[in-house]
């Protein structure tokens, strides 16, 4: 069995977000890039599945649509334990564009992992689009996954609870928190090995984005916090009713 894990390259979660002067482009100066947190958990789960006793997982491939600067992030995924990386050499214009690029080769895999969103553009889209383009099953909000023969047993969150499902391969699992406990951190040996693992670069196919970010905007600054003494805590509830009018 072959597993593909989609890898988003996103700014570190503590990054101070800046834009150019006319607010039409993200300013990547000084930004530290990381593997999208959900993708890191997905890769961790893929590794666990491969290492499990009696596992049928032969290989784990990671893939990203991005320019050469994203190779550091792909190398980190190789250092965590993926066997091979694929980079489609293009700017990730929008989710439909990215999914179209991935659809060229993702059909060769039995199980594809995508994160529920990317922490930069918060899109929630690539995984589901890719599944539809490939015509394969998908389950979203996956917080647990086990392979049992040709069936996959999946835990997913629903609004108002959770479910355990059986679904057949090939499958695209769109994962969230819980899929793995902690993301794996590359060990020294993994980092050394990653240098010699294959990283294939593909040229993009022709595709049109369907959405385009025109301008960015920073949130309104908040007014100062109104402080109330610990012993007057009851007063705050009255303020919420009479002043803020939210009770």
């Amino acid at each position: 069995m072959k597993i593909l894990v989609l890898i988003g390259n996103v700014p570190d979660t503590t990054t101070k977000i800046k834009f150019n002067a006319d607010k039409t482009a993200f300013d990547a100066n000084g930004v530290q890039w990381i593997i999208n947190p959900w993708d890191e958990l997905a890769l961790t789960r893929a590794m666990e599945l491969k290492e499990a006793p009696g596992s049928t997982v032969e290989t784990i491939v990671v893939a990203n649509v991005g320019r050469a600067e994203t190779e550091g992030t792909l190398r980190k995924a190789l250092a965590i334990g993926a066997d091979k990386a694929i980079r489609v050499d293009a700017d990730p214009l929008d989710a439909a564009y990215v999914a179209t690029q991935l659809a060229r080769f993702a059909g060769e895999f039995d199980l594809v992992f995508a994160g529920i969103e990317a922490s930069d553009y918060n899109g929630n889209a690539v995984g589901g689009m890719l599944a539809e383009m490939l015509g394969i099953n998908s389950v979203s909000a996956v917080s647990g996954l086990n392979i049992e023969g040709s069936q996959v047993i999946v835990n997913r969150e629903i609004d108002g609870g959770s479910q355990t499902l059986g679904v057949s391969l090939p499958l695209l699992a769109i994962v969230q928190k819980g899929i793995a406990k902690e993301p794996r951190i590359p060990a020294m040996r993994g980092i050394m090995m990653a240098r010699t693992k294959p990283l294939e670069v593909l040229q993009p196919v022709d595709a049109q984005p369907l959405t385009a970010i025109r301008t960015f905007e920073m949130p309104q600054p908040k007014a100062a916090c109104r402080k109330i003494g610990e012993d007057q805590a009851k007063e705050l509830i009255y303020l919420l009713r009479d002043e803020a009018k939210v009770l």
């Binding site: 439909a96 690539v126 589901g128 389950v139 609004d159 369907l210």
Partner: peptide, 22 residues
Amino acid sequence: NNLGKAIAPRLAVKLKAGLVSA
């Protein structure tokens, strides 16, 4: 929500539509 997030991308591909979530 969980269901809308799961449906929207598949639907967008079927309708050749752009998707903006949230």
